[in-house]
Design a protein around this nucleic acid. Sequence first.
DNA 1: ATGAAAGCGCTAACAG
DNA 2: CTGTTAGCGCTTTCAT
Lengths: 399, 399
Amino acid sequence: MDGLQPRRHRRRVRPAARRPAGRRRHRPRHPGGGPGMSTESSGQRNTAAPRSRTRPARKSAAASAGTGMSQVAERAGVAMSSVSRVLSGHADVSEAMRARVMAAVEELGYQPNMLAQMLRRGATRTVGFVVGDISNPLLSQIALGAETTLRASDYALLLANSVNDPRLDAENIQLLHQRRVDGFLLSLSDETSEQTAEAVARTDTPTILIDRDLPTRAPTSAVLSDHRAGITRAVEHLVGLGHERITLIAGSPHVRPTRERIDALEEALEDSPGVVAQVRPGAFTEAHGRAATRDLLDGRRPPTAIIAGGNQILVGVLAELAAREIRIPHDLSLVTCDDVPLAQFFTPALATIRRDPYEMGATAARLLLARLGGAADEVATLPTQFSAASSCAPPRPRQ
Amino acid sequence: MDGLQPRRHRRRVRPAARRPAGRRRHRPRHPGGGPGMSTESSGQRNTAAPRSRTRPARKSAAASAGTGMSQVAERAGVAMSSVSRVLSGHADVSEAMRARVMAAVEELGYQPNMLAQMLRRGATRTVGFVVGDISNPLLSQIALGAETTLRASDYALLLANSVNDPRLDAENIQLLHQRRVDGFLLSLSDETSEQTAEAVARTDTPTILIDRDLPTRAPTSAVLSDHRAGITRAVEHLVGLGHERITLIAGSPHVRPTRERIDALEEALEDSPGVVAQVRPGAFTEAHGRAATRDLLDGRRPPTAIIAGGNQILVGVLAELAAREIRIPHDLSLVTCDDVPLAQFFTPALATIRRDPYEMGATAARLLLARLGGAADEVATLPTQFSAASSCAPPRPRQ
DNA sequence: ATGAAAGCGCTAACAG
DNA sequence: CTGTTAGCGCTTTCAT
């Protein structure tokens, strides 16, 4: 071995206690060891008399577990209520008291049991996030924005995927409601679902819709994207280039973005007689993108420009175009909605209608925080930007 | 308007009760309305005598809220414990009892308060997922796999981002512990952090590491990827093509994937004297990818092949290559780790070391479920695949 | 400023 | 099989 070497070399330390690890996923169940067989590492002072008759599911005595507020009180020689007051920063507490209590807390390594607090206070400081598909970069960035903002206010995020199934939307709402979340962030799979609307209505929990509309029956806040503006700019650009047949391959017609985009496309073309809009709603999937593209290109009058209504759809569109060796923008112009990580390195560069998903999530969280703080429901609309790029060019002269 | 029209036309229904929505994010705080000002929609039977002296934060009387188990018991004319037994599917319950109770439940639309159950049972059916960056597609797919699997067993996922800050790792673990999660799924930002190790050790909660190692002190299960195999295949391929200077631009050296990849690269080249390995660990960021690439290309002996150790790093590498108009694979061969959505449309196609992140998440969840069911800790290693592609070619002859 | 007591809504002994 | 009872661990009146 010659030449430069890594600055950092590291011995391969196989963690001692582990089995060699040979990719076994479905571990055979231990014959004799059903639930309840748990390792039960007996704590130190297991000898003394049981504290009471009732002793449910004793949790193994770990560092902090089992140390309750009453122990702190005893240690500090004060009443539990005083400990509680100190810990929750109540005003009327003497310095002496505060010091005594904090000392005891320190010594015992006491950590409050939030479960008990939640039950008692009637608030969980938890927000339920129902989302069609967290693995979609758009949604995961929204999640990041939301989580970051919520955490700054000491809220935690309970995540529930619906895998784009409206029934799971409703079920998740119900489930999270039973877990007593203080609020909801909803990126629903289908805003027309009766069950979902009911689930939302049944809950009187503050709810923020993320780029969705819902029958007014259930009052909510919402963070919306201004899809109209984006589509309008894109269409203006395409029309300016001379396109006369523009197709939007859109996602599910049961969510706001799709409806807005379709409306915007049609509206934008109202002033341009001679320019034809086509719309292919369907699903936010690669399959739909591909099928729609195939269909269009096989049709009597294929479009000269396609707008892909989402990142998965884009994949399908590109796949079909690649299969047919259709060149962009020579044979067809292409615009896409919502950025994807590597899009910037495409050749040709992809014209894109962008928005800021992190900011959407953060805004949704702020709206919810406001609602939880007593404010009224509110709708925020965030902008959308169209960046032209070389994937759009004048159409080829009519055949 | 002529020609084809969309099959679906839709009136633009502006939801009635909403303000026109003019993008205002930082809503001014209402002067007089602090917390506690909440709308307090008084329920129907607000006239009767208060049920008790203590009445904390009375939740507004919604459909299901306020309906407690005792009411069901009363309605059914049985004891609360019987209701409980019926609802938790206890064996020794007569059909008559079951029917009476279920009827009452139905009529009242009763939904159990999981908070109370959690406190009483000492289990929350909640899993804490600590992750460096949920917006990374790799991690969000892992999250999806985990959530889907956990949900099938009635566990919910509490998500905590650490934005790649080791201190937040530890803090999040502590926070989730206070929320009494039953288990942890950890995709730590830095496995060498003392604080994190302590936090994990302090918790006696079952913990699954996701592609991380941790000092044995804290016993855990783990799901690992076989990075060695992937790198080994990739290097074999490159060496086979005649490359003699291969650089791995890696992410943080404080996580397992980076260490494994570095080790594997060096090991793979042990048998190939004359082939030089370079390693540039740093961070999983575009910035590092770009800086490292710049550095390498400006160096005395630039590599003939680069392995990008992550999707963000890849973006940086590509950016720098594009800026210098370096052609792949003519001037340089490129391999990347971990797939990204649009990579398949790259020209040339990117050679990639792949794994199945959804399956990683699902496996992690299964391991945790097993642990929660009383099984011992276990390590699962999932495979990795190298697909060659046209981004790799023989190097240009030495200058 | 501090303490005593009364639960939040539920479960699980225990005793019929 | 069903009812009684004693809490889970904490917060919050209410009364000093």
